[in-house]
Simulated scan of single mutants.
Amino acid sequence: MKLSPLVYLLGTVSFLMDVASEMVYPLLPLFLASLGAGTGTIGLVEGVAEATASLFKVVGGRLSDRMGARKPLLLLGYGLPGLLRPLLALATGPGQVLLYRFLDRVGKGLRTAPRDALLAESVPQEALGRAYGLHRGMDTLGATVGPLLAFLLLPHLGVRGVFWASAVPALLALLVLLGLREGRRASSRPTPLPPLRPSAMPPAYRRFLLVSSVFALALSSNAFLLLRLKDLGLSEGEVTLAYTAYNLLYALLSYPLGSLADRIGLRRVVALGFALYALVYLGFAWAYSPFLGVAFLLLYALYSAAFEGASRAYLATLVPQEAKASAIGLYHTVVGILLLPASLLFGLLWEHGSAPLAFAAGAGLALLALFLFLLDGKKPPAYPG
Rank of each mutant, 00 (worst) to 15 (best):
S235P: 14
L193M: 07
L298K: 00
L219M: 11
P381N: 07
R115Y: 09
A358R: 03
L210R: 05
L232V: 10
A278Y: 03
P114T: 01
K378E: 13
A316N: 11
S4Y: 03
Y303R: 00
P380S: 10
Y250Q: 08
P192W: 07
A120V: 11
P190K: 06
L374V: 14
P198S: 03
L98F: 12
A366K: 07
L368E: 05
G142P: 06
P94Q: 08
K2I: 01
A360M: 04
L90T: 11
A358Q: 01
V319E: 13
W350S: 06
G273Q: 02
S212A: 11
A131H: 14
L44H: 08
P256C: 12
A363G: 14
Q125I: 05
A361G: 01
L80A: 02
A275W: 06
L299W: 13
G36Y: 04
Y383N: 11
S166R: 13
L148W: 11
L152P: 00
V335I: 13
Y300G: 01
S4F: 03
P114A: 01
L75K: 10
L63D: 14
Y78T: 00
V270P: 13
R70H: 12
L55S: 00
L348R: 15
V214R: 00
A170I: 11
L157P: 15
A261M: 14
T140N: 11
Y255V: 04
K324Q: 09
R101P: 15
G47T: 04
H135D: 05
G237V: 07
P256D: 10
